[in-house]
Amino acid sequence: MTRRIAFLLVPGVHLLDLAGPAQVFGTAGAFGYPYELHYVAERELVPSAQGLPLQAGTVWPELGPDDLLIVPGWLVPDPPAVTPLPLFDPASLDALRAHHAAGGTVASVCAGAEALAAAGLLDGRRCTTHHDLQDDLAHRYPRAQVVRDVLFTTDDRVVTSAGIASGIDLALHLVAGHHGPAAAAQVARDMVVYARRNGHEPQSSAMLRHRSHLDDTVHRVQDLIDARFAEPLPLSVLAAAGGVSERTLTRAFARATTGLTPLRYQQTLRVERAELLIGHGATIEAAAREVGFDDARMLRRLRSRTTSDG
């Protein structure tokens, strides 16, 4: 199923706020995860904050519950105006509200949170924005629950990010949610980016945290573990996939991942997937079976070890 991603652009849009998420979804599309990107504005020609004019459509694509509407940030005066000029006409704010009401996801990068707030979508919800804009957002929209110093937040299909490069983290998080963390890791690796961990959200996974190295052999083995982490994967099978001996793989893996063995990496993926399932209502027994454990005892032990390590 193709997912439509609609970017709502305003004059003064920051190029990286737009290009970062667009690159993530575009790269995911190149790997066979179907995304269709649309760019919408109230006028066809949109000047960017960096001086490059952008061409956008003025007619909204038809969006369904599985689609995403995202508002990149724009250049904000320093200090922000006490009463900022309205950047969106009522029709655009209605489109944001209607998409969310129909079951769709809305997102923002940096100052784009202003649009979600103006549409009433941040009322009573956790959100964030660029650190320079957090106080202003909290002051003007007191019903918004502004979370400080995090990369992004998610709350009831409303996703907000801190700004600039964090839009990439947000988009990788959404790709992981749609297609699994292996897909996000594949995109992150191709883009040569390292998706940082959000202190308040279980951001995408160890697949991203332990993919910042440059060892192609270890990456090949991680590709296999990422795709089949719920299956038994003997060290001999992993070493054969990497084209090296078991001893060489163990040493290279530990060096590339700061001390992890292939088994510990696989267990970490299993635990993180189980935590996601439990967070969505699964019992610990059901989650354990889903990620490849015979029963819940091993999962309980590994969860306890993860908590004590953290």
Results as ranks from 00 to 15, higher is better:
202 P>Q: 15
212 S>G: 14
164 I>L: 10
92 S>C: 09
23 Q>V: 03
12 G>Y: 03
275 E>S: 01
255 R>T: 15
227 A>R: 15
42 E>S: 13
77 P>W: 07
227 A>W: 02
192 V>A: 14
35 Y>K: 03
258 T>W: 04
83 T>W: 10
237 V>Q: 09
267 Q>F: 08
115 A>D: 13
131 H>Q: 11
253 F>P: 08
22 A>S: 14
45 L>S: 08
287 A>Q: 10
103 G>R: 12
60 W>Y: 14
107 A>Q: 11
194 Y>P: 00
256 A>V: 06
299 L>G: 10
261 T>E: 10
302 L>D: 14
293 F>C: 02
27 T>L: 05
207 M>D: 03
15 L>P: 05
259 G>K: 06
17 D>F: 07
139 H>R: 15
287 A>H: 08
90 P>H: 07
253 F>G: 04
192 V>Q: 12
67 D>T: 13
5 I>R: 07
127 C>N: 13
242 G>A: 10
264 R>Q: 09
165 A>Y: 07
20 G>H: 06
293 F>A: 03
54 L>I: 01
39 Y>C: 04
180 G>S: 02
258 T>G: 01
303 R>L: 09
157 R>H: 15
97 R>T: 11
53 P>K: 03
31 F>H: 14
150 V>D: 13
230 A>P: 06
37 L>W: 09
223 D>Y: 03
16 L>C: 08
83 T>R: 08
254 A>Q: 06
47 P>C: 05
29 G>R: 10
131 H>V: 09
277 L>M: 09
6 A>F: 06
